[in-house]
Design a binder for these strands. Structure first.
Lengths: 223, 223
DNA sequence: GTTACCAAAATTGGCGCCAATTTAGGATAC
DNA sequence: GTATCCTAAATTGGCGCCAATTTTGGTAAC
């Protein structure tokens, strides 16, 4: 069994144990393969066994953890194929609504997105892994809200958690982080310019983490 | 509180209580708005309280039922906006992979789909609501498997359960049922003819339940 | 050093129980 | 007839407990 280390902080009462465990999985505190002992989680999150069980059941329903009868639950190993498939789905969904996002963008929403992109920049510099991750989510959620389809916004949020969009695996290098930050701003640029094709291209490159999407003049703009 | 009627059959041991409750919701036995009393479900499905609670928690996570603290759980009311949004998502996803489906279709898979379309025809005539529903799911799952993206197949299965794709609301008229049956065969025709555009058009019309998608000669083919 | 066995310790799984909360029905006042 | 109040009944929520199962560590045999 992979060992788990106790933490000293008490459970935050406004957040469910499910959220706390999920956070620790996504930030790498509970790495892939870790066996999650119920009695240890009770202590770690300062909660009762039934709460732990509910959290674990929920996470297993989301396929973040696997339940092995009579042995317990462990964090799923990364699966490259699943990750690829989830990225493909995200590309399909997010590019399909690019025209709607452009059509519905207002100066206020553009300003808001610019602000969130800058916030991500700052978290890149001074934030924790979690703050960084959450800044990224905030940006993308605000962008997707422009689609006008709430179910799609929620769905993308859900599926992102399933695989390699988790922070421990998403940004492997400093260069990748910086590129992501630039891409955020470029997406806002494309939105402002009402350039649907550019926005689609950026979204796809961003999700797949491929290519160099940066025209030189757009990069200069951030300086 | 909306009253629930007891059933006389015992729980099928190979299926989880979650599945049983879900089936009763989807087939209209437990209509929208019904309060699901834990002690009644225990009797209905011949199981223990913890099993009922787990099932209800899972269904509430899927937003099929709503949990009201200290009052219990009730089946969600239909929400037209959500239904529309889910249909939009399905159209995006399923049409996006139409080219992949055409590209990957083999004579064997086409024969299999033809068989499943015929099975749906038969269930339309002689099957129960549930058998009919499951025949539809089987057809669509087999079709989507041609995309090669398992996550997408699973995801579409999941989101279909959320709203008006449930059998109680999907087929309101005999004519609608018959059109769905015809559309299945036409999708297989398009696949066989490797006509991506036609397949996309059929898939969209099918999901939205709009229009008359039938060219006269295709309809004659089924006679 | 490796393998097999066994007992103790650790952990999971699930049930029963009861406190807390809500609902339902009857009585009373207007 | 309607509104309010009160109490008993019904139901939910959550905890403690223990049987069942697995893991761990020590010992013996090869």
């Amino acid at each position: 069994m992979t060992e788990m280390h106790d933490v000293t902080e008490t459970a935050a009462n406004d957040r469910d144990v499910t959220d706390l465990v999920l956070e620790d999985i996504l930030t790498g505190v509970l790495p892939a393969g870790t066996w999650l002992k119920q009695i240890d989680l009770e202590k770690r999150y300062d909660c009762t066994r039934p709460e732990v069980r509910r959290a674990l059941d929920r996470l297993s329903q989301k396929r973040l953890v696997e339940h092995v009868p009579n042995r317990g639950y462990h964090v799923y190993q990364p699966d490259g194929r699943r990750a690829q498939e989830v990225s493909d789905i995200r590309v399909i969904l997010e590019t399909a609504v690019a025209d709607r996002m452009v059509e519905r963008a207002t100066p206020e929403s553009i300003a808001r997105l610019r602000q969130l992109a800058s916030h991500f920049d700052r978290m890149t510099m001074v934030g924790t892994v979690l703050e960084h991750y959450e800044a990224n989510l905030a940006f993308h959620r605000e962008l997707l809200l422009l689609s006008g389809n709430n179910e799609l916004v929620d769905l993308v949020s859900e599926i992102r958690q399933r695989t390699s969009s988790a922070p421990v695996s998403q940004w492997r290098t400093r260069a990748r982080v910086e590129r992501s930050a630039r891409e955020h701003h470029m997406m806002v640029d494309a939105l402002e310019a009402r350039d649907v094709a550019d926005l689609k291209r950026l979204i796809e490159a961003h999700i797949r983490q491929t290519g160099d999407a940066a025209p030189a003049e757009s990069a200069a703009r951030q300086a």
